[in-house]
Each structure stands twice: as structure tokens, then as C-alpha cells.
Design a protein around this nucleic acid. Sequence first.
DNA 1: AAGTGAGACAACCGCAGCTGC
DNA 2: CGCAGCTGCGGTTGTCTCACT
Length: 259
Amino acid sequence: MVRAPCCEKMGLKKGPWSPQEDLILISYIQEHGHGNWRALPKQAGLLRCGKSCRLRWTNYLRPDIKRGNFSKEEEETIIKLHETIGNRWSAIAARLPGRTDNEIKNVWHTHLKKRLKNSKTSEDSKRHTIIQKCDSKAPQNPNSSSEQIVDSPQHCSSEMSSVTDSSEKTVTKHEEMDYSSEYFSQIDETFWSNDFSTDDNINLQSTNFPAAKNDEAQFKFPPSPVANDAGGNSEVDDSMDFWYNVFIRAGDMPDLPLF
DNA sequence: AAGTGAGACAACCGCAGCTGC
DNA sequence: CGCAGCTGCGGTTGTCTCACT
């Protein structure tokens, strides 16, 4: 199979998305659904490849994305699932509504892996201490190693069971918020029942997604970290219609293509 | 105040698998 | 059945921010 030329060779834009591009993409998908991702950027007037558009939508712009810190439960779910199925991020994401595989992957690499390593280290050292204690308690047998004692240590099982993960709370720069309920409370069930993870041709107009009904006042996307970082304005965080405010504040409302 | 390194997260790359012809 | 086109997935890289010196 001949690989399609990459974005750069086609003269397409790479790197971070601008708010204008986001709005164009949102508006287009709102109006038409994504349909064919490859054709989308051309039809929407974006100088991006379809892959980039798909990624941007699925990982960031999709309205059912839940942003903010991961809850303890979510982190535990990730850890447990990772134990059983490994690096199958999309499968793990499927078990965490509103979370993307990319986000989970990032969290794993930045927080959970380290935490697990730390807890394993502390557990190992604790195990080591217990093993030493067990060794001293256990009947002396020159042929048995310490590990063997730990694996079936009737005389110190209670101590071993006390070795637990004492993971500390991770702190990230974004406050924990449940955007899904705060920002999308006005979206009814028919919208959420749309399966955006599938490749169906999403037509938001056929849903009750507020923006699809031309109700701009209700059109709300969650504030992105980009906006928080760039603006640092609490007004932004509080109540507003985030995306429209971004453009209006910037005084840089893009000329949206006529679809 | 400037430089630097680490951490966090967004985005890209390339391969695999699926589907239609 | 084989090929081409497309999407999904996981690994990796790039970029930005912030803390520290």
C-alpha cells in the first residue's frame, strides 16, 4: 500500500491548534458530522490532515470529554486494568467514560507509573524488613531462601497483608472539576447516547446537542487548560460560554467557511 | 531577572486491522 | 483473494509551564 503523504509534504499545518481552527472544526462537525476524516479538512477549510482533525476532535474537542484530574477511583481502575490487559489504552478508556486513551496514557506515564514504582519500592523495602523478621522467626533452613519464606509464610502472613499501597494524592495544575455535568447539563440523553467512539457518521443536528439547534447561548464546551493558562482569568473559569468568549476576547473571530 | 531542568500534556508518527471493491 | 483506502491504536516526540538556582 502506498502511504499517503504526510501533512508537511502536503503543505498542511502541524503543531498546536489555534482557537480559530478549533472553532472551524467544531462548527463543521456540528453542521455535518465528521463523515470521512480525510475529506473533512478540505471541506471545512482547514489546513490540517484528517488524522490531525480526528485526533483533535476525539482527544480534545468532543463534547463528552471529561476534563480535570482523575479521581482516585479512576486511577485505581486504570491501575487494575493495566495489570490485567497491559498497555491497551483504548480498552482502558472504554471503561472510563469521558476519558480518552491519550489522556489515560499520559496519566499513566506521568503519575501512575511513578507512583506504582515508588509504592513497589517502599513495598519491597517493607517486604525486605518483614522477610528479615520472618527469617528470624522461621525455623532455620539453610536451603530455603527468603523469597520462599515470603511466598508461604504462615508465621508472618498478617504482617504481609498489611503491606498496602500508600499512594499519595497527585496534584496537577488543573483543579478537579466534573465538566461533564457542569458544562453539559443542558444536553439531553439523546446526545450522550451517541457513540462518538465509533466511526459512525455523527450528525449533531440529528441530536439534541444545543449548538446543533442553533442555540448559541447554550453552546458550551469545557474550558481548556490552554485558555486557563493563557488567560488566567477567573471569569473564564466561572460561568461563560468558553469557546465563544475566547474568540470574542481575542477580538479575532475567524471567518467561518461557508459549508 | 535570566537560565535551566523537570513535569505535564498535546500532538504526531507509523503500523495494524478493517472494509469495500 | 488481493489491493487500496481509511481509521484506530500505541509509542514517541514536541511544546509549554513552572519551580528552582
